[in-house]
Design a protein around this nucleic acid. Sequence first.
DNA 1: CAATATCCGACTAATTTTGTCGCCTTTTGT
DNA 2: ACAAAAGGCGACAAAATTAGTCGGATATTG
Lengths: 137, 137
Amino acid sequence: MKLNKKVEYALMALKHFSELDHQEGTVQSTVSAKDIAEANHSPAEVTARVLQTLSSHGILKAEYGLHGGYRLVKDLAKVSVYDLVNIIEGSTDLAKCISDKECDLLKKCKIVSPVENLNKKVQNFYKSISVEEVFHV
Amino acid sequence: MKLNKKVEYALMALKHFSELDHQEGTVQSTVSAKDIAEANHSPAEVTARVLQTLSSHGILKAEYGLHGGYRLVKDLAKVSVYDLVNIIEGSTDLAKCISDKECDLLKKCKIVSPVENLNKKVQNFYKSISVEEVFHV
DNA sequence: CAATATCCGACTAATTTTGTCGCCTTTTGT
DNA sequence: ACAAAAGGCGACAAAATTAGTCGGATATTG
């Protein structure tokens, strides 16, 4: 039931981007992975990987080169916690058995549908919360 | 964000108990840890431990001896998913830092209150779902 | 008093999470 | 042209957590 570090780093990074104020009509400047990591005291390599993942999913946009880095390109009001966790962790399933075709136990067990039921409720809940909403306490 | 095995075993066990039909006004018969484990194909020792935990928290009642075992003594409509996870896992915190006084990172980081905020929302959600509700798909 | 239960501490094994390293490609400034 | 700074990515190593096992103690019943 815990958030993992990568999701935390992603949240920290997104918060960093969301706090950059930038002029109306201008393009927000880029921030390098290194700078994000330093600002958040998060390990550089891991942070870089997280940013790459966010970039490959269209939340950030990456730019190569000397003054490269990342830029926020998606409205965080339109990114749900569900989206974020799926992007970073790859799944929001409550139990492995839900996607696991080889689970002997759960084929026999009586709780597959109850767990699937709970799973849907939880996922819908996470879908209902945007990242922006999380930041505005 | 995943349920761990112990919680799954607990759900399976509770479902087992909830399906024992028993006469109005009579005491529900006991089921041993061994029987529960066999019925659910769950490892005996771990299952036993889970049942002990449920027992020490007043959800089941244990009886020693030859015809001993466990008996459901709490209305599952009054046990929330939040309760269950807390009993089995000891915590429902989304991030370690929330209870961890020694987290250097999070003292400096910008997302403690956002994460606490999200944490409360999630916990309230889990409080709103009873175990009985999970079983009645 | 033997059989069958729960109870519980300590331990091991397996898995997952977390972080690191090395090397690659792309872009920019000099 | 080319060095420096940036992202991209596969493979690996370390740490932490989760899952499961073992041994023995206590309680109850026939």
